[in-house]
């Protein structure tokens, strides 16, 4: 990982020095253990602030598309690269203005899971290969990283960037999965009432801060439907129907576009697994259209186009 960080800094410094890009978007160390913060670097010196670790769980495509018209470089792991692809397809980023510093992804860790394991505030966090050394005020543990990967990372089949201008480090081996959606299968197996109960409980603590939406690179609409007042599509209070409407509709807006990057769950202050919604639709996109989002800049997502052989078994 250290050589990888070194290379990121070198490349970023180089690009800035030569004036090939105005800014490099990457991650910097955070102020507390296990926290990292997206940064935009504009000088060679500042490139030393860039870092990369298993806690860089947000998606930088979200930041890249906000730099319209500027030449930028982005540090991109598998997920980020797939969302950059989506943004290129959806006219949010001009490929010519984008330099992608690809990073084969080691998998991101689940902060909630580690905190639960440690039972207190984390005061120290280090990575040594696959070992995580985590401490609290009165405890210190060595954990096997593979057991504490984020759920999406544990099921990831695109750790390597799918689109990049330079690759930092060797490509990692992609895992082969027999079933990429065991969690969705489990929910699908529930009765209708069971599923409803599951989703009711899932969103019970939602505070509608919209961190999930704002962390999501797909949510770039100038005005989100929940923020519209004419018409007001959704009530703004804590009415359960309104809360769920937000989650359902947001998921539908991501249908066929979501790369399951996990930024939404990473951002949620309440620890709600909002991916339960999007993953069902990802699975449907896979089953119905053989589609995984963000793999090619040559094709639009299935719901963005109409084709006569679209599955329509639901029409009786």
């Amino acid at each position: 990982m250290d050589t990888c960080i070194q290379k990121i800094r070198e490349i970023a410094g180089d690009l800035l020095e030569k004036g090939e890009v105005e800014r490099v978007i990457g991650f910097a160390e955070g102020s507390i253990p296990m926290a990292t913060s997206p940064v935009a670097i504009s000088t060679k010196e500042d490139a030393q602030k860039l870092c990369f670790s298993s806690t860089c769980g947000l998606n930088l495509a979200n930041y890249a598309s906000k730099e319209k018209g500027k030449k930028i470089a982005v540090v991109a792991k598998g997920c980020d690269s797939r969302n950059l692809v989506t943004h290129i397809v959806e006219n949010q980023i001009d490929r010519d203005n984008l330099y992608i510093i690809g990073v084969p992804c080691p998998g991101m860790v689940d902060k909630f899971k580690i905190a639960a394991e440690m039972g207190g505030e984390i005061t120290g966090f280090e990575e040594a290969g696959d070992t995580l050394i985590v401490s609290t005020v009165d405890d210190k543990k060595e954990l096997n990283k593979q057991d504490y990967l984020r759920h999406n990372c544990s099921l990831c089949t695109h750790k390597n960037p799918v689109l990049f201008d330079v690759l930092v480090g060797e490509e990692v081996e992609e895992q082969q999965l027999d079933n990429a959606y065991p969690d969705v299968d489990a929910i699908e197996a529930l009765t209708a009432d069971g599923r409803w109960k599951h989703f009711e409980e899932l969103t019970q603590n939602c505070i509608r801060c919209y961190a999930c939406r704002n962390a999501c690179p797909l949510c770039y609409c100038p005005t989100c439907f929940v923020d519209e007042s004419g018409p007001q599509w959704v009530g703004k209070g804590q009415d359960k129907t309104d809360v769920d409407t937000f989650h359902f509709l947001r998921a539908f807006h991501c249908a066929g576009r979501c790369t399951d990057c996990g930024a939404c769950v990473e951002a949620c202050p309440m620890g709600i697994n909002v991916r339960d919604f999007t993953r069902k639709l990802n699975k449907d996109a896979q089953d119905m259209f053989g589609w995984e989002a963000g793999l090619t800049i040559d094709k639009r997502p299935p719901l963005d186009a109409y084709s006569p052989d679209d599955p329509n078994d639901f029409i009786k």
Binding site: P38, V39, Y63, R208, C209, A211, R213, N214, A215, P269
Partner: peptide
């Protein structure tokens, strides 16, 4: 502000 995603988390907590 660069990294801020303008969620309301800080204000709600």
């Amino acid at each position: 502000a660069f990294s801020c995603i303008n969620c309301g988390t800080c204000t709600y907590v």
